[in-house]
Each structure stands twice: as structure tokens, then as C-alpha cells.
């Protein structure tokens, strides 16, 4: 199976004096579902940020989607990001835009035609059960609904990989379950690689997954 993420001796830090991830080596296969867990401040989100190039490795190598992220140019990073969908705990929606416009963002960036974009947005809003909220702005929706908009945005451009940072952290159980179903659906039906940083792995996901745990900056796989 193709490897979509390959880390070799990867170390990450915000300040060079304080390593958050130390000398990590692992690989994530294309089409897999991966959980990354760890205590607060263990470096889970830092690791995820490195996958989309927001944080560059201090040492070692990190290859995502075939692109070496150590010292990567901005233009190459942009190209890579156009094939990744990202979901955040705080949704990161543009509040001045309608939910349709938010969902269409990756399609616009990828240069899709207007009609294709409109159709795709329409399909996705139905998929995340938000068709009835068309025309509304993010702040007019509940937290769960906003996260579903973020999910629709992450899925819009059929990415090779979805990176989710505590996607259910702010949601009630019902909304959280909807998000897990959407992530599992993307993985199962579209073969999209999903990497989720979370405190808690859901009980009833119904799919195979890998689990990495971070402790004191070290990453190990839990069987």
C-alpha cells in the first residue's frame, strides 16, 4: 500500500530548546484511519500541524503526499494543501461568508468551474444534513452544525487525506457521532486517509483503525 505520510527521525519544536516530538519514525498508509492520542500538551496537535506544513521539522524528515516538508517552498506547500482537508476543534469557518461559500472554498482554490462548485456544495450540504440552512452564516448555526460545515468543506475537493484536530472536542454526543460517521464514511467510501487527533477514541466507529499514542514527546503505536 502507498504511504501517504512517512516520518524518519522527526523532531518538532516551537523553540529549538524545547522539543515537543522527539526522533519519531512512522508511516501512514494511504486509505487508513489513524487516531493520535495523548495527554493535553503532549504534542498531538503539533504533530498534526506538521502534516499540513504549519510547523517545519527541526530535524529528520517528513514526507506528506510525496512532498518533503522540511524546508518546503510556499508554492509547493500550497499545492500539497490543495489535496488535504482539515477540520479543527474551533471549526475555523469564515464568519462573514455564508455556509455555501465556506464549503466552496477548497473548490474555488482548486479552480473548479462555478457550476461544478455549486453542484458539489449542494451535494455536500445534503450529505452533512445542512441543506435547510442554506444562506445562513456560521454564527447563526449551532456548534455541531458549524462542525458539519467544516466537514463538508474538508470533503469538498475529494482530498487524499483529512486531518482532524479534536473535531468533536466542543460537541455534544449526537453531533460528535455525526462527525465520526462522516469521517468514517469518507474513509470507507472514498478511501480517503483520515488522521484524527483526539482525547477519546469513539466506541462504535465500526471500521479498522491504527492508534498512535504520544507520551513525553515519543510516539508509539498501540495495538
Amino acid at each position: 500500500m502507498d504511504k501517504v505520510i512517512v516520518a524518519q527521525g522527526l523532531s518538532l519544536a516551537y523553540e529549538k530548546s524545547e522539543m515537543i516530538i522527539k526522533d519519531a519514525s512512522f508511516a501512514i498508509e494511504s486509505g487508513s484511519f489513524v487516531f493520535i492520542t495523548g495527554a493535553s500538551g503532549s504534542g498531538k496537535s503539533t504533530l498534526l500541524k506538521s502534516f499540513y506544513g504549519a510547523l517545519s521539522p527541526v530535524s529528520g524528515s517528513l514526507i506528506v503526499g510525496g512532498v518533503e516538508l522540511k524546508g518546503v517552498s510556499r508554492s509547493k506547500l500550497n499545492l500539497l494543501r490543495r489535496h488535504i482537508g482539515i477540520v479543527f476543534q474551533d471549526y475555523k469557518l469564515v464568519n462573514e461568508w455564508t455556509i455555501e461559500k465556506n464549503v466552496s472554498l477548497p473548490l474555488v482554490i482548486n479552480g473548479y468551474e462555478k457550476s461544478v462548485t455549486e453542484n458539489q456544495v449542494d451535494t455536500l450540504l445534503k450529505h452533512v444534513r445542512l441543506k435547510h440552512q442554506t444562506g445562513k452564516y456560521p454564527l447563526e448555526l449551532s456548534g455541531g452544525e458549524q462542525q458539519r460545515v467544516a466537514m463538508a468543506r474538508a470533503l469538498a475537493h475529494n482530498p487524499i487525506m483529512i486531518l482532524a484536530d479534536e473535531p468533536t472536542g466542543n460537541l455534544d454526543d449526537y453531533s460528535a457521532q455525526l462527525i465520526w460517521n462522516l469521517l468514517a464514511g469518507a474513509n470507507e467510501q472514498l478511501n480517503t486517509t483520515v488522521v484524527v487527533v483526539t482525547h477519546r477514541i469513539p466506541q462504535s466507529l465500526g471500521i479498522d483503525y491504527r492508534h498512535f499514542h504520544i507520551e513525553y514527546g515519543n510516539i508509539h503505536e498501540v495495538n
Binding site: A54, R81, R82, V108
Partner: peptide, 16 residues
């Protein structure tokens, strides 16, 4: 700042 950040996360070039 926020909008530019979000667009950057999805690979938008600076001009966009």
C-alpha cells in the same frame, strides 16, 4: 487575518 489564515490552510496563493 482569520480569513487569510483559513484560505492559506487550504492552499490559497497569497494573491487569492
Amino acid at each position: 487575518k482569520d480569513r487569510m489564515n483559513i484560505m492559506g490552510l487550504f492552499g490559497a496563493p497569497k494573491w487569492l
